[in-house]
Simulated assay, not measured.
Amino acid sequence: MSKPRRTVLSGIVTPLVREAEHIEIPQVVNAETAPPSPRRRSATKEATIQQTVYLPPAVHDQLRELAFSERVKMHALIMEGLDAVFRARGLKSIEELTPKS
């Protein structure tokens, strides 16, 4: 017969005992009376659209190594590549397309 399975937490979790005078009870805020928390979004995030890029593993690895060796983000290299594609086809550059802030 197999042994009962022990979880990692069962060996370390112990009941926590504190004296009543040291316990601080947090105040419960009613959701109806609480002011709504504003969602914060950065201006950059609002002004961009997320796009997924599927890369073969070897291409991803090479791009990652290049970004690491140049101490830049992979995104910066992808944007540089898109700018080169636009330039080669006589289109506006990324700098011309993005609004100045």
Results as ranks from 00 to 15, higher is better:
residue 4 P to N: 03
residue 72 V to R: 15
residue 7 T to V: 12
residue 72 V to A: 07
residue 74 M to D: 01
residue 50 Q to F: 07
residue 71 R to Q: 15
residue 23 I to C: 04
residue 73 K to F: 02
residue 6 R to T: 11
residue 60 H to E: 09
residue 66 L to I: 15
residue 76 A to N: 11
residue 96 E to I: 06
residue 64 R to P: 00
residue 28 V to A: 12
residue 10 S to H: 12
residue 45 K to E: 15
residue 53 V to M: 08
residue 44 T to R: 08
residue 34 A to F: 02
residue 72 V to N: 05
residue 56 P to H: 06
residue 17 V to W: 06
residue 27 Q to A: 12
residue 8 V to G: 02
residue 87 R to P: 02
residue 91 L to T: 05
residue 83 D to N: 15
residue 42 S to Y: 04
residue 96 E to N: 05
residue 23 I to V: 15
residue 33 T to A: 08
residue 40 R to M: 08
residue 72 V to K: 14
residue 28 V to G: 04
residue 79 M to G: 10
residue 75 H to N: 14
residue 88 A to Y: 05
residue 89 R to M: 00
residue 77 L to R: 05
residue 31 A to F: 03
residue 9 L to I: 13
residue 42 S to F: 00
residue 69 S to M: 10
residue 61 D to V: 00
residue 53 V to T: 09
residue 9 L to W: 04
residue 101 S to P: 15
residue 70 E to H: 10
residue 75 H to F: 02
residue 4 P to G: 06
residue 8 V to D: 04
residue 23 I to G: 01
residue 57 P to M: 12
residue 23 I to S: 02
residue 15 P to S: 13
residue 18 R to K: 07
residue 70 E to P: 00
residue 88 A to P: 07
residue 47 A to P: 08
residue 82 L to H: 02
residue 56 P to N: 07
residue 42 S to K: 05
residue 84 A to P: 00
residue 52 T to A: 14
residue 95 E to P: 02
residue 92 K to D: 12
residue 35 P to Q: 01
residue 85 V to P: 01
residue 50 Q to W: 10
residue 35 P to W: 00
residue 27 Q to P: 04
residue 1 M to Q: 12
residue 101 S to D: 11
residue 86 F to H: 06
residue 64 R to C: 09
residue 64 R to E: 12
residue 39 R to H: 08
residue 61 D to H: 01
residue 2 S to C: 00
residue 75 H to W: 02
residue 81 G to Y: 06
residue 15 P to H: 07
residue 44 T to E: 13
residue 81 G to H: 08
residue 91 L to F: 09
residue 97 L to N: 03
residue 48 T to S: 10
residue 25 I to F: 09
residue 65 E to Y: 14
residue 28 V to M: 04
residue 14 T to S: 11
residue 20 A to H: 10
residue 98 T to D: 09
residue 21 E to S: 06
residue 22 H to P: 04
residue 98 T to N: 10
residue 60 H to T: 00
residue 58 A to D: 15
residue 99 P to N: 13
residue 12 I to S: 13
residue 83 D to S: 09
residue 77 L to K: 03
residue 74 M to V: 06
residue 78 I to K: 09
residue 49 I to W: 10
residue 85 V to D: 00
residue 17 V to S: 03
residue 53 V to N: 01
residue 32 E to H: 14
residue 18 R to Q: 11
residue 2 S to D: 10
residue 61 D to Q: 15
residue 36 P to K: 00
residue 54 Y to T: 05
residue 5 R to V: 12
residue 68 F to K: 07
residue 43 A to P: 06
residue 72 V to H: 08
residue 20 A to D: 14
residue 32 E to L: 09
residue 91 L to H: 08
residue 22 H to F: 10
residue 49 I to L: 14
residue 99 P to C: 04
residue 91 L to S: 05
residue 88 A to L: 06
residue 61 D to R: 13
residue 52 T to E: 10
residue 70 E to V: 04
residue 8 V to C: 00
residue 36 P to L: 01
residue 101 S to I: 11
residue 26 P to V: 01
residue 57 P to Q: 05
residue 2 S to R: 12
residue 96 E to H: 04
residue 34 A to G: 01
residue 79 M to P: 02
residue 42 S to W: 00
residue 48 T to P: 00
residue 17 V to I: 12
residue 97 L to T: 09
residue 5 R to T: 04
residue 21 E to C: 08
residue 85 V to W: 01
residue 12 I to Q: 14
residue 36 P to M: 01
